[in-house]
């Protein structure tokens, strides 16, 4: 249902673009300010004036936005514009990169996630991440999913762990395909199955937010469709921030879309608005394919 409507809006947008006034006639936008509605009421995550540096090189400039509870936010933009960098700042994965530095305020339910006293381990249990390339551990399917609950000590009994594994695989839509071979290596699955296994592994620790960095870019269209379906289902229980280079994907899965350009957050709006009537000329240039 939802897919159909979004797709039709995209078609619409293609038509409406022709009849719209030339970009030059738009209301001028103040330099450095994000247009649209980057903020929401009672956000899950609130980022204010975030700068990210790699050594001396600044990759993210003064980005402020919110991610609301149980919404899917997609982040789009030309490659190298800092989408991954910003996403990785949200669960401090940038900590692992030598020379990476994050400034500004990033809060998860009001708590500063860059507080030096905060432990990143529970943070990453609350804000999980799915990566571009499926990266299952070279262990069995079962152990892949069970790893998170084990290290966080979420379950005491083996039977409970079995339940968590089954439930996670169910929710990742993988259970029926793998229930007979849980002891086989996760690396033996197809690419799409591996990615769903990685999603199962992430949701096994019941995170509140799931960050996905181009989760489908290494997958074929059918596997991609399955993951997109899955994202729609997961959004009932989780807050999801997804980076994608595919505008169709952003349009299909997300309710809000953020457009990044050269490290700056240009525009945040309802997905439909971004793809039909972008406020900023750079956004429009991007979605009409003038650069990418």
């Amino acid at each position: 249902m939802m897919e159909a409507t979004v797709e039709s809006t995209i078609e619409q947008s293609a038509d409406s673009l022709v009849s719209r006034p030339a970009t030059g006639e738009r209301a001028p936008v103040a330099e450095g300010e994000t247009v649209g509605s980057p903020f929401v009421d009672s956000p899950k995550m609130a980022m204010r004036n975030v700068d990210v540096f790699y050594n001396d090189k600044q990759a993210i400039f003064d980005v402020s936005m919110d991610i609301g509870s149980n919404e899917v936010v997609s982040m789009i933009g030309p490659s190298g514009c800092g989408k991954s960098t910003f996403l990785r700042a949200l669960n401090r994965m940038n900590d692992t990169i030598e020379g990476a530095r994050v400034e500004g305020s990033l809060r998860l339910e009001g708590q500063d996630i860059y507080d030096p006293k905060l432990d990143v381990v529970p943070l990453r249990a609350r804000v999980g991440m799915v990566f571009q390339k499926p990266n299952p551990f070279p262990k069995s399917i079962y152990d892949n999913v069970a790893y998170g609950p084990r290290i966080h000590g979420l379950v005491d009994r083996r039977a409970d762990l079995d339940d968590v594994v089954e439930d996670s695989l169910q929710r990742a839509g993988l259970w029926n395909e793998v229930k007979d071979r849980l002891n086989q290596p996760g690396t033996g699955l197809s690419g799409g199955q591996q990615q769903r296994l990685c999603i199962a592994r992430t949701i096994a620790v019941s995170p509140e937010v799931i960050l996905m960095d181009e989760p489908c870019s290494a997958l074929d269209p059918i596997a991609t469709a399955k993951i997109e379906e899955l994202i729609a289902e997961l959004s009932e229980n989780f807050t999801i921030a997804i980076v994608t280079h595919s505008m169709q994907q952003a349009a299909r899965v997300s309710s809000r879309t953020a457009y990044f350009h050269l490290g700056k957050l240009i525009e945040v709006n309802d997905t439909e608005r971004v793809f039909t009537n972008p406020e900023h000329e750079l956004t429009e240039a991007y979605i009409t394919g003038r650069f990418g």
Binding site: T96, V120, R124, A125, M129, F131, N135, A204
Partner: peptide, 12 residues
């Protein structure tokens, strides 16, 4: 990618 996977779900 294996390191990121581990860190990403909260391994120390």
């Amino acid at each position: 990618s294996i390191r990121e996977a581990a860190l990403g779900i909260g391994a120390s």
